[in-house]
Design a protein around this nucleic acid. Structure first.
Length: 434
RNA sequence: GGAGAGGUGGCAGAGCGGUCGAAUGCACCGGUCUUGAAAACCGGAGCUCCGUUUACCGGAGCCGUGGGUUCGAAUCCUACCCUCUCCGCCA
């Protein structure tokens, strides 16, 4: 969400960024609703003032009269009617307001989709295999560390089991990553994954990505006896939980920046990507992830610095694992409404013969904080909305694709990356069983 | 799942139709006193929104949330959310 006054003063910029991000906002309608909204507030406030004055007179039994009471009744009716109008206008107004995208950094590429993203850095050598490589599915099957067939049997499409060293490796990755983050001063969290709609609106996952999120219904009853559901949702990342942790709070500037990392299972419905990546571990309905989140002062330069810091941590993880990757500056059409600037880290996946997304590093200025009503008080006593950032630390099993495929050997075994060995009893290789 | 109690300012805690944005205590800020501090005493202080002559000026709203009753609601009714206690069940 943006400040309505900022929107009014920057209509041209916003019209452009809206188009560049592939969105459609009726700004004329928004301004109209804002006018209506403010006019109604004024009218209502005036009538309430009269009502209060009237009620004040009636306090005195001597002044009590049928006329005053009638006057009070009439005022009440007018107020009720206007309030009802106001509520309707506010709903429409809010519906548009939460769709208004954030502005972008100067260096964000303008483009339509991921084809227009720009590679800005590269690390590691793409491995050249002298044998016919297997993809992670084959490796997983041959080494008995992944079972897709039974995953589908039990969980349905996109279901999977990690098994043996496959299972161990996932836990190893998470633990290694968690430890790294703690060493860097991030506060470790295990976050709720069953969350309320407000948290998802706050992070900006709603309304944009609503269909991507699983909904869980809680039955209840309305006044009228009508059955209702106050839904809960399965979070697709710990980001909304970590951000909403401080929703409706006013923090102290001296406590910023807050550096958090959250470990959670993540759920994605993948509606809208039906035909895509249907094989293997690339796109699954549930996975585990450690996410890094920063809540900081409202300072663009500082935020950009932190974005680089988060990127650096993610790069460090891939370098620790010795996986080739590149960094791309994500273009407007691919970045999401709330983003001010965004990088993706894509890791080399031999079977896909491509770099594929494993990390996503974003800076959102105060776009999320406004939705979350997350503020801080400056040293001068001023109240401001905070800025927020987030990036992946590690997400598995997707990263296992890169890990298994890049580390495979001619004999069909997989070398375990050194950094993970301590978590797997110092085992060096995953070899075929028996 | 059953039974009961309750949600008021940073915290504790009164208020149970108009005198309540809200007593009182603690904490906080300023002052007096003091060599300094403490104590004591005096004074001050919340948030959100709207408007404008942008002035800490005017107005509205905020006592878990929404709806209702009333000329008037922190106070009454109602639904929902949450917390606590006891019983039951349970990883």
């Amino acid at each position: 969400m943006l400040d309505i006054n900022f929107i009014k003063e920057n209509l041209k910029t916003l019209a452009k960024v809206t188009k560049d991000k592939g969105l459609k906002i009726d700004y004329k309608q928004l301004l109209k609703l804002d006018d209506k909204r403010r006019n109604l507030i004024q009218e209502i406030d005036e009538l309430r003032q009269k009502r209060n004055a009237n009620a004040d007179l009636l306090k005195d039994p001597e002044k009590r009269s049928a006329k005053l009471i009638a006057e009070g009744k009439s005022l009440k009716d007018k107020i009720t009617a206007l309030e009802s109008d106001y509520n309707k206008v506010l709903v429409e107004y809010t519906e548009i307001m939460i769709l208004v995208p954030n502005v972008i950094s100067k260096d964000t590429p303008i483009g339509k989709d991921d084809k227009d993203n720009k590679e800005i850095a590269k690390w590691g050598e793409i491995p050249k295999f002298k044998f016919k490589i297997k993809d992670h599915l084959q490796l997983g099957k041959d080494l008995d560390i992944l079972d897709i067939d039974r995953g589908v049997k039990v969980s349905g499409f996109r279901g999977y089991y990690l098994k043996n060293e496959g299972a161990q490796m996932q836990i190893a990755l998470l633990q290694y990553a968690f430890n790294k983050m703690i060493a860097k001063g991030f506060v470790p969290f295990i976050t709720p994954t069953l969350i309320k709609q407000e948290a998802l609106i706050g992070s900006g996952h709603f309304p944009f990505g609503k269909e991507e999120v699983y909904q869980i219904g809680n039955p209840g009853k309305l006044d009228s006896g009508e059955e209702i559901k106050e839904p809960l949702y399965l979070a697709g990342t710990s980001e909304p939980s970590l951000l909403a942790f401080h929703a409706n709070e006013t923090l102290k500037e001296e406590d910023l920046p807050l550096k958090y990392c959250g470990s959670s299972t993540c759920y994605r419905s993948e509606i809208g990507s039906y035909g895509k990546d249907t094989k293997g571990l690339y796109r699954v309905h549930e996975f585990m992830k450690i996410e890094q989140v920063i809540i900081c002062q409202a300072d663009i330069a500082n935020g950009l610095k932190l974005l680089e810091e988060l990127r650096g941590i993610a790069e460090e993880v891939l370098q620790d694992l010795k996986l080739p990757y590149h960094v791309i500056a994500v273009c407007t059409g691919d970045m999401g409404a709330g983003k001010y600037k965004m990088y993706d880290l894509e890791t080399w996946m031999p079977s896909r013969n491509a770099y594929s997304e494993t990390h996503s590093d974003s800076f959102l200025t105060d776009w999320q904080a406004r939705r979350l009503n997350l503020k801080y008080k400056t040293k001068d006593g001023e109240t401001k909305y905070a800025f927020t950032l987030n990036n992946t630390v590690i997400a598995s099993p997707r990263i296992l694709i890169a890990l298994w495929e890049n580390y495979q050997n001619a004999d069909g075994s997989i070398t375990i990356p050194e950094i993970l060995r301590p978590y797997l009893g110092n085992q060096e290789k995953i070899s075929p069983k028996k």
